[in-house]
């Protein structure tokens, strides 16, 4: 697979002036007759004939204008065959021709007009809509990079919306009030080349409706209202009250709802006319002037819809006074109650029946409430002429009586009496009389229904006969016109009859043993439930928590407080940095005689990015120390990216989210080759691209940096253009003898110098490892990790498998306190092969047991160096012990510097 596009042509231009654009040649042509041929899209596949080849010279020409949007790339398969036998003398070779993009396409919106809506009073930055424009030019190229911009807003004034220039998302920028403007219209422009002046633009419109919410209280025109009505009359429209509301008309946010504060007798009712928001006061129950001449009511108004949360707390129920004057009307007398029931004893003799006084049926004067004095009484409906009445007093007597009148009928006799006022006009009041037989069962209360009259019989089993005592025992319900019981039951404790079911005429309700058992069971449950609930609450208080079904670990785990439940993107794999400033050490590895140097300080070919948001562009020389300090200061740091010579598209965010964008890399290399060819003929066409990737998709595990060397074995002068670090790495890749970087001094720490050791409990760990040198021209991956730690001892990090990714892996780990300036560590590896360096600086009183973790290197070309500097202030000469190395390929160096004040007892165990 070719790494680069071998050749390029520009779309929309006549490229033939550059012919031949490429030549192929086989070494076999020196001693064999060779003919060359090509095939592929643009040659013998549509579009045909764009590329042709001189079969004898191998020169490839372009013949037509190409369109990148049609064919972004051509792959020419080149063949070299024997001129006579036609046998392929070389494996086919793919020559990729990249079509360079020109900005010949304008952004195209997905819609000409976008329609959207948003509620008023929404929070700022609320997303309203998202505009989408596409550009047919090359993806990941500036020609297709679209920037959005609001050109105008109607109605004009303060900008109510903000448009994200990159994403096309329209957000609220200001407080929206529908009552001010209920619709906005925006003209939006999309320009490619990221909005540059030379970009091509297109426009669309956005219509945004502001949706109403109930953020206005209804009000009334007046502070108080009054009305009057005659007594004993109803009104469907006693008063009309206009409500005013600024919310959207005819919506529930606008429609008023009137309600009374008072109105205990329910004589009045409000309804709202939804067409004009007028509240109509109705009188639904007659008023009695003699009882109340004036009513002082109060009412309030709200909306049918609930108030918006932004104003709901401000709503106060303020009653509006409403005075109702009742107008007196002259009323005729009346019988109160209008129906009276009289009983006659069953054992009444015939003699006694004559002139038997049934009772008094006097009419009442409505104006005074007393017995009417100016009326005369007459019998009205009395089919059997059973009664006679005293015309002046209303005394009712039996005229004649026949038991058959009751028995044949429904058990009672019904008649009407009249009370007629004297004078003109005469008013007549009518009363109803019901006569029935009094027997043992007639002592019970009488119930009245719409259908029939039912008499509740006296208790069949009377345990207490006192009138002021509640009845006990059983009861029977039966129609008043019959003896057949329709339901029976028992009296409960307070004398209330327990109404059983209604079995129908002639049926009787009885409770069986099963029903009693159910009742007992129900009572038991009522007793047990509170007890069990109390026990459960007690268990909670005692710390017992319910376990999820499915065993330990199933279900949700609670998010601890103060955690926020968010993912903490420390940006550092495998460590747990804290919010502390970190001072790192600059580690330099020297190859003594061979002069191999790999330093941790980063050469000035990239820029730093901090905090994960801001991007600092430009060239900036940073040392490893500076970098580490920065990382310590910004625990959640972003990736570091840098481009030599020129910046290209692709943002930090893209790398973070998508890992290494291979499309971007392709574009990068192509454009860089293009740019180099323009500016410097003698410039080597090699490149070093350092891309710090935040463990994105496809990047090596645990890495934040990748370095790719593209070189050709015929020309290695490009090494001189690299920074010292990557030059060294490239040289390792190429298998060259590595020379030390001038000016870089790295020695063991001088214990007599003013060495600032870290504070107690500080640990410095440096791990470096590298695998076997790669083959020439291959890719090198460099990983760098920087760790910050607190004041506690940190376990050694496992060294990553050097064989996993690429050919050289460098892992650097820094852990220190706030002020320590660590010394450089000089290592003399015998070979430029796998190197593992572990350095620890331990403070006094540290517990060193079990903290050292030197990897077991089974490979024969490994170097393990362990250095320890322990405790300041000591005058003890350093002791350096070098183990006897039977195998020359393995070197283990152990050095200890121990001073008297360290307090350590020499319990270190170093492999």
């Amino acid at each position: 697979e070719w790494i680069e596009f071998a050749a390029a042509c520009r779309e929309g231009e006549d490229n033939s002036k550059r012919n031949p654009i490429a030549k192929i040649r086989s070494d076999c042509e020196e001693n064999q007759p060779i003919v060359y041929s090509i095939s592929g899209i643009g040659i013998d596949q549509p579009p045909y004939g764009i590329f042709v080849i001189n079969k004898n010279t191998g020169e490839i020409n372009i013949t037509s204008i190409v369109d990148r949007e049609v064919t972004p790339m051509f792959v020419i398969r080149c063949y070299a065959r024997h001129a006579i036998t036609n046998r392929e003398v070389e494996p086919p070779l793919d020559l990729r021709i990249r079509v360079l993009d020109i900005n010949d396409n304008a952004p195209v919106f997905s819609q000409a007009t976008y329609m959207g809506s948003i509620e008023e009073s929404s929070m700022e930055t609320t997303l309203v809509m998202k505009l989408i424009a596409t550009d047919a030019d090359e993806p990941n190229n500036l020609n297709s990079k679209i920037a959005y911009k609001i050109v105008s807003q109607e109605p004009a004034g303060a900008s109510m919306f903000i448009l994200n220039r990159d994403s096309g998302e329209v957000h609220i920028a200001n407080y929206l009030d529908r009552e001010q403007y209920d619709r906005y219209s925006l003209v939006v422009r999309a320009s490619d080349r990221d909005g540059a002046a030379d970009g091509i633009s297109s426009q669309c419109t956005c219509s945004i409706e502001v949706i109403d919410v109930n953020d206005n209280f209804p009000t009334l025109l007046q502070n108080s209202y009054s009305a009057s009505i005659e007594e004993n009359t109803l009104s469907s429209q006693l008063l009309m009250i206009q409500a005013i509301d600024r919310d959207q008309m005819f919506s529930d946010n606008w429609l008023a709802e009137f309600y009374f504060i008072g109105n205990e007798d329910n004589c009045f009712e409000f309804v709202t006319d939804s067409t004009n928001n007028v509240g109509i006061l109705k009188v639904i129950k007659p008023l009695n002037y003699e009882q109340m001449q004036s009513l002082q009511l109060s009412f309030a108004v709200r909306n049918k819809a609930a108030f918006h949360h932004s104003i709901a707390s401000q709503y106060q129920v303020i009653g509006t006074p409403l005075t109702i004057q009742v107008i007196n009307v002259k009323e005729p007398p009346s019988f109160q109650p209008s129906t009276r029931i009289f009983y006659i004893p069953r054992d009444l003799s015939k003699e006694a029946m004559s002139n038997y006084i049934v009772g008094m049926c006097a009419a009442t004067d409505e104006e005074t409430g007393l017995i009417a004095s100016n009326v005369r009484y007459l019998m009205g409906y009395d089919p059997s002429s059973m009664f006679k009445i005293n015309a002046k007093t209303g005394e009712l007597r039996l005229n004649k009586f026949d038991w058959s009148m009751l028995n044949v009928g429904k058990g009672f006799y019904k008649a009407e009496i009249l009370a007629i006022t004297e004078g003109i006009p005469a008013n007549t009041a009518t009363g109803t009389i019901v006569l029935t037989i009094q027997d043992d069962n007639d002592n019970c209360p009488v119930l009245s229904t719409d259908i029939r009259k039912i008499c509740m019989s006296a208790p069949s089993t009377v345990l207490s006969a006192q009138a002021d005592q509640p009845p006990k025992g059983s009861w029977t319900l039966r129609p008043i016109d019959g003896k057949t019981a329709v339901s029976t039951g028992v009296y409960v404790g307070d004398g209330t009859p327990d109404v059983g079911r209604w079995p129908g005429r002639g049926g009787t309700t009885t409770l069986g043993g099963g029903a009693i058992a159910l009742m007992f069971l129900g009572a038991l449950i009522f007793l047990l439930v509170p007890i069990l609930m109390a026990m459960s609450a007690c268990c909670d208080r005692c710390g017992y928590k319910a376990r999820p079904v499915g065993g330990v670990g199933a279900g949700f785990e609670p998010v601890p407080e103060c955690d926020g439940g968010a993912i903490h993107s420390w940006g550092i794999e495998g460590a747990h940095p804290q919010d502390q400033d970190v001072t790192s050490i600059s580690v330099t590895k020297h190859a003594g005689s061979a002069g191999e140097i790999v330093e941790s300080s980063v050469s000035g070919i990239y820029t730093n990015t901090r905090g994960g948001t801001a991007i600092n562009t430009g060239m900036k020389e940073t040392s490893g120390l500076e970098t580490a300090v920065d990382y310590g200061r910004f625990p959640i740091y972003g990736t570091t990216s840098g481009y030599r010579k020129e910046s290209v598209g692709g943002t930090l965010q893209e790398y973070r989210e998508g890992g290494v964008n291979m499309a971007f890399l392709d574009s990068y290399f192509a454009e860089k080759a293009f740019a180099y060819a323009d500016e410097d003929e003698g410039r080597p066409a090699n490149d070093c691209l350092l891309i710090y990737d935040h463990e994105g998709i496809g990047s090596p595990v645990g890495s934040i940096g990748c370095c790719s060397f593209i070189g050709e074995d015929m020309d290695d002068t490009y090494l001189d253009t690299l920074g010292p670090k990557f030059k060294t790495l490239a040289e390792i890749c190429l298998g060259k003898v590595v020379e030390p970087i001038p000016g870089v001094s790295a020695t063991f720490p001088n214990i007599d110098s003013d060495l600032k050791l870290p504070p107690p409990g500080t640990t410095i760990i440096v791990n470096e490892s590298s695998s076997m040198p790669p083959q020439v021209g291959s890719t090198t991956f460099v990983t760098e990790n920087t760790y910050a730690s607190g004041a506690t001892l940190q376990p050694a990090r496992p060294i990553p498998d050097p064989l996993l990714h690429g050919n050289v892996m460098v892992t650097e780990t820094y852990t220190s306190g706030s002020t320590f300036q660590p010394p450089a560590l000089t290592i003399d590896p015998l070979r430029a092969s796998n190197v593992v360096v572990t350095e620890r600086v331990l403070a006094p009183n540290s517990d060193l047991r079990g903290v050292l973790n030197i990897p077991d290197l089974t490979d024969g070309a490994n170097v393990v160096v362990t250095e320890r500097v322990i405790a300041p202030g000591s005058r003890l000469p350093p002791s350096l012990s070098i183990p006897d190395l039977a195998d020359g390929s393995n070197v283990v160096v152990t050095e200890r510097v121990i001073r008297p004040a360290s307090g350590l007892q020499g319990s270190l165990n170093i492999p």
């Binding site: 071998a6 031949p20 070299a80 070389e90 060819a677 323009d678």
Partner: peptide
């Protein structure tokens, strides 16, 4: 070997041949 020479792009119409050999990523 099977060699490819490509004429590099140059706005100044100055050609420069660049030789490629088989390379793998």
């Amino acid at each position: 070997g099977f060699h490819v020479e490509v004429k590099e792009w140059n706005e100044n119409n100055v050609t420069r041949w660049k030789t490629f050999k088989r390379q793998k990523r």
